[in-house]
Design a protein around this nucleic acid. Sequence first.
DNA 1: TGTGATTTGTTCGTATGTATA
DNA 2: TTATACATACGAACAAATCAC
Lengths: 245, 245
Amino acid sequence: MAQQKPVERHSGVSLWRQIADRIRVSIADGEFRETGRLPPAFDLADRFGVNRHTVRAALAFLAEEGLVESIQGHGTVIVGGRQLTLPISKRTRFSAGLGDQASSVATRLLNSSELPAPAEVASLLQIAPERPVIEVEEAGYVDGRPVSCSQHFFPADRFPDIARHIAATGSITRAFAACGLPDYLRHSTEVSARHADARERELMKLSPGAIVLETRAIDTDLDGRPVQCSRTRFSADRISLRMTA
Amino acid sequence: MAQQKPVERHSGVSLWRQIADRIRVSIADGEFRETGRLPPAFDLADRFGVNRHTVRAALAFLAEEGLVESIQGHGTVIVGGRQLTLPISKRTRFSAGLGDQASSVATRLLNSSELPAPAEVASLLQIAPERPVIEVEEAGYVDGRPVSCSQHFFPADRFPDIARHIAATGSITRAFAACGLPDYLRHSTEVSARHADARERELMKLSPGAIVLETRAIDTDLDGRPVQCSRTRFSADRISLRMTA
DNA sequence: TGTGATTTGTTCGTATGTATA
DNA sequence: TTATACATACGAACAAATCAC
């Protein structure tokens, strides 16, 4: 197998790391779905134009992540999964959006607290600064693998028990319903991309240097009043976003 | 100055590279806008918990990119710019969307060609496979710095002269108008993030390992018929996207 | 005009990580 | 596994340029 895109030397990123990153996205793209395992290390070394030892270092790194498993005399089998698409629309919902692409979608409440609204949050929620807000942190899982972590702010005056309902129902949509808000709309979503920080890497089991897609969103009720603002980080290896007008 | 987030050792990414990346986003966030220059290398070394040499390697890398300039005895001044936000809506337009955030916004046509529609493009444009399409490649500039590169496909049956009009007017919106389409709407936008490849790095003058935001979009006329599909890559350091319902 | 404080630039040496054969 | 070459990171010193006073 001939090499496709050469690997970058002297870029400050070691070759084994670049190769691991590229194999990871190949797996996410479903490139090795037929065989369920990676080509032999010798072929990979040839494809990337590096020494076989370097490929072995990359595979050891991916094995450490739990994405592949190397078996003596057999090969390197793929354990993890491929990329999913989350639709972003007026009715953006995490579970419903991913539900038909995976067998299980779940969120887990990490913690919640009540605090005076920081200036930016107050502005986004259109409430007076220092009015109380409920902050909720969640993690999102698809087929048991963590794919997102998020931070949500709700006006405490209007939804004083939202955290309890989220804990009980495991869903923000259902928690809103329990608070007397049967439907809500996505007003705006801002998307950016950057490297994951230490906490995101820990929550989503990412390797150093992994990329996250960050969305900052505002949801409103049907009258256009803000009901939550949120900041969600998705593992870019596992999730892409689709905006539909 | 105490260190904030520690730098990752033994991650396969060199320390100078991590530090360069973090300083780059700090600059994009406007953290040093007051002084217009970076703190002394000694302070940065202390903040990141590394040797001054390591910070110097990071600064040399950023200087190579043209983002900063080190002057002996004086300091390290910031030359490049901050992050811009491109609104994505039903009427997404590159120039108009960024126009009020910068003094100059421009696009440059890189090349164009006519070819039979690849299967995916034909499907997105809702035309028969192998029907001719016009492919146009563009680069986008803000204040003279490249921020995006894009690939556009138009149905050749309906817009046979689109490439000529784009070249003449420097604008897809105006080229459509010249082809008898005064208005068009953004139907859907899919966003993902990944590392820039060699060509993108060259076109946008990015460093190895830089992140791009990739959008895949479909535009339609007012009757809902697709008029173009496109794939645009933005330098994630310079551009973020905002979706508004 | 000078003088010291600040800040970048340079040169040793040494230890460890990375990549190849 | 071993050997070799090069990149990365640290520490200590010193040189050179700039600025405030």
